[in-house]
Design a protein around this nucleic acid. Structure first.
Lengths: 126, 126
DNA sequence: AAGAATATATCCAGTTTCGATATATCCGAA
DNA sequence: TTCGGATATATCGAAACTGGATATATTCTT
């Protein structure tokens, strides 16, 4: 199981929402499924993140009352909060992907296979 | 200027030290130079990080007294703390690179160009 | 002699992290 | 019909992290 940092979590959630509207629980299942169980975003990571996205205007939200098949008509029913990526969210995602790729490319300059071998050089303390 | 998160900072510092021993200020200049000024690790990020690496046994350290050319013989001189990647540090670096690549590869599954286009699909609410 | 560069290091207020916890509904099995 | 697992959203709080500001001291350049 690989743990996701906030930045990566946001990137993944925005990416999932770019496909279409969804809600917390479904997003979390989606992430687990689409990463073959390697990525996991727990409720305590998911909901503060979604709230933040909402506050920043990257998503719009709406409640759905999920009526059960044979449910008590008086029952409140299970509530589901849908998240839809806004225009701002789409732009933000594009921006983040760009940023992500740039960081990757520069990082790769440091993390080359050559770095893993012989540290025998004597360019110190001389 | 791209800001580095702790994880990336550690990866970069370990990578720099894999080439050979160095010290805080030099590492920070090295990172700026080797990233064309895109990455920056400030003193307040660098020294706590180096201390942590030392505490975790990923580096060994030693002080060097840097005598100036025409310096006062009684002068203490400038002190330089050298950091050398330990065996444990080398192993840790290899491990982190592996982890980094794995995260990248899975992340790329989410962040595909296709995600940036038309979110018209109706696979919600069904 | 002043100021920029070299060099290491801590402080601290704000943010992030993430397991634990709380609440409530729905569904299938015993 | 009752129990447990799955569905579903949300907060708490201790610990860790972040990064600008600050402190200290030496050396080089002008």
């Amino acid at each position: 199981m690989l743990t996701l940092k906030q930045d990566h979590s946001e990137l993944v959630v925005l990416s999932v929402l770019a496909i279409g509207p969804s809600y917390g629980y479904a997003i979390s299942k989606d992430i687990a499924a689409r990463s073959d169980g390697h990525f996991k975003l727990s409720p305590s990571g998911m909901y503060p993140l979604l709230t933040k996205l909402e506050k920043n205007g990257l998503v719009t939200t709406g409640w759905e009352e999920v009526k059960a098949a044979g449910a008590d008509p008086d029952s409140t029913g299970r509530r589901r909060k849908w998240y839809t990526l806004s225009d701002k969210g789409h732009k933000q995602l594009t921006k983040r992907i760009e940023h992500h790729r740039q960081v990757q490319s520069i990082l790769d300059g440091f993390v080359m296979p050559s770095n893993q071998s012989a540290p025998e050089s004597e360019l110190a303390n001389g």
